[in-house]
């Protein structure tokens, strides 16, 4: 299911123009990271994907659905959205009920919903915490509950807004694994992130935004190597990319394998 965005602009009621005309296609199964300084329009853009925001002009299509013609509740069948702050989306008395809420609302049969919940809990390593109140868990685990509750809805498209904020190394690895499993299942995964090393290691396509526009869009190595342009939206290239540049490696590298291969030449 492709995402098609044409000439999208968006102004908040206060008059702030957050998106200034952008066009974009994300193919089914694509893995895309969106980077850029605070206020660049990243969250405003992805809130258009499930109809939380409607274009001021231009259009957003998810498969054959134009977001202006369908309710947010209906869009939720195609697009799952994990908020930056899990506390904005968790409300149930225990983890099992929380994660089951989405699939039930989509009208899945009890059996199918149960299967989805079990799968999402296993993927997020929460299977032993189903009876726990989400607010008795640490912030790290609450984040995983938020992920699970969206994954259980089995949407073709999954959006993560800043999934690694405030997470420790172990949980970042868990989140990277969730993204890997979704990729293997052919899901489209779109992630907003400030964590540029996480971006480099987990995404094939990178979009850099600045002031409501797309600054760069392409293969991760090509985008992450453009140090000067990225600097205009206050993004530093990944650690190993910077190291590779400083050492004069011919190709832009973004992970350990590429770096060591480049060094060995």
């Amino acid at each position: 299911m492709n995402i098609e965005i044409q000439n999208l602009t968006f102004s908040y009621p206060t008059g702030v123009q957050a998106l200034r005309g952008l066009s974009l296609t994300i193919n089914s199964g694509g893995q895309v990271a969106i980077v850029g300084q605070n206020g660049a329009g990243k969250t405003t853009l992805v809130k258009h994907f499930n109809g939380l925001l409607q274009p001021t002009s231009g259009s957003v299509k998810i498969g054959d659905w134009d977001t202006r013609e369908h309710s947010v509740a209906k869009m939720a069948r195609r697009v799952g959205y994990v908020f930056q702050n899990p506390d904005e989306q968790l409300f149930s008395k225990n983890v099992g009920v929380e994660v089951a809420f989405g699939p039930k609302n989509l009208g899945m049969s009890a059996q199918q919903a149960e299967g989805q919940v079990k799968d999402a809990l296993a993927m997020t390593e929460l299977s032993d915490k189903t009876e726990t109140n989400p607010y008795d868990l640490s912030a790290t685990w609450r984040k995983m509950v938020a992920l699970a509750s969206v994954i259980a809805m089995d949407t073709d498209i999954v959006i993560f807004d800043e999934p690694t904020t405030g997470q420790d190394a172990a949980n970042i690895a868990r989140i990277a694994n969730v993204i890997k499993v979704l990729r293997e299942r052919g899901k489209t995964v779109i992630t907003i992130t400030h964590d540029i090393d996480f971006c480099a290691e987990n995404f094939e396509r990178v979009i850099a935004m600045s002031q409501g526009r797309i600054l760069l869009d392409g293969n991760a190595n090509d985008v992450l190597g453009q140090e000067d342009i990225l600097a205009t939206t206050y993004v530093d290239p990944p650690q190993l990319t910077r190291l590779g540049k400083r050492l004069g490696l011919q190709k832009t590298v973004r992970n350990e394998e590429e770096f060591l291969a480049g060094l060995n030449k």
Binding site: D168, I172, Q239, L243, L260, L263, N264
Partner: peptide
């Protein structure tokens, strides 16, 4: 033990194993 480490440390550790 679940500590975050710098990519520089991590890649140098691997490079050390292969003499780089």
């Amino acid at each position: 033990k679940g500590f975050g480490i710098s990519r520089y440390t991590s890649v140098a550790r691997k490079a050390k194993e292969i003499g780089l």
